[in-house]
Amino acid sequence: MVSASSVEPQALADMQSGPALKVRGYWASVAYRLRYDYLTLFFGGMVILVILSAIFAPLLAPMDPYQSSMINRLKPIGYKDFLLGTDELGRDLLSRLLYGGRISLTMGVLPVVIATLVGGTLGVIAGFVGGKVNMAIMRIMDVFYAFPSILLAVAISGAMGGGIVNGMVSLTLIFIPPLCRVAETATSQVRSLDFVEAARASGAGTFSIISVHILGNVLGPILIYSSSLVSVSILIASGLSFLGLGVTPPEPDWGLMLNTLRQAIYINPVICALPGVAILITSISFNLVSDGLRSAMDVRL
């Protein structure tokens, strides 16, 4: 590396862009590795498909997901215009599954995103500043970390009552501590690395150190960890809805649909299984994409 005595403005700029360049090269290699990982690409495609079908549900859904009809209840797959049959109120199941994806995905993704922002920020601050700040943040996190996630989600939702918002709040709360911990560990490790020390010695501001050096190296582990939480979030959210602590009817949500359709399992078991299949496929896709990213980025957590 450049010796400290010969630091010229140009050299400083080079050094600052050094890790950034390294990062770019790193991402290129990640992309290269991903290009030949067909499994991840396939399930990545599935994830995109699920997301797109949720976004464009109003265009794709053949019928109104809320329109019930008693004479058409619990019809099998392919009955008349109902491609995937109807639910216990005679509503078109395909339309409800499409719309249901909107809520289920939101409940899977949004809490993770918010938790990543909040937990990640707290973790980076704790790791970078260290000392008492680190103490304070991490000890509070430890308290929440002391609860098994489902228990905490059920307890919070149970206390606050059902509803989409309460469900998302409780999911966000359970994801913040682990994300904070991942961010803190990664930041502490990077902080003591040579190039950060060098940047600090050269007088680079805290903000630029964090934004260029730390984030460049910490973002990877955090993103991979967050991506692995999406399927957990979808599963817990559907579990909450199933217990009556999550989404409230008549909103279509896969977990809630499983719950209400369960009564009809003796009449039309195939129909009753469909929301479960939707959850399973989405969850598998997110898991495999997260795995693929992890091995492509070669990060250990």
């Binding site: 399927s231 599963l235 579990g239 479960g276 399973l280 969850s283 598998i284 495999l288």
Partner: peptide, 11 residues
């Protein structure tokens, strides 16, 4: 293993 962690167990 992936199915194991992805399946809603109540279902």
């Amino acid at each position: 293993a992936v199915v194991g962690v992805s399946i809603p167990n109540y279902w």
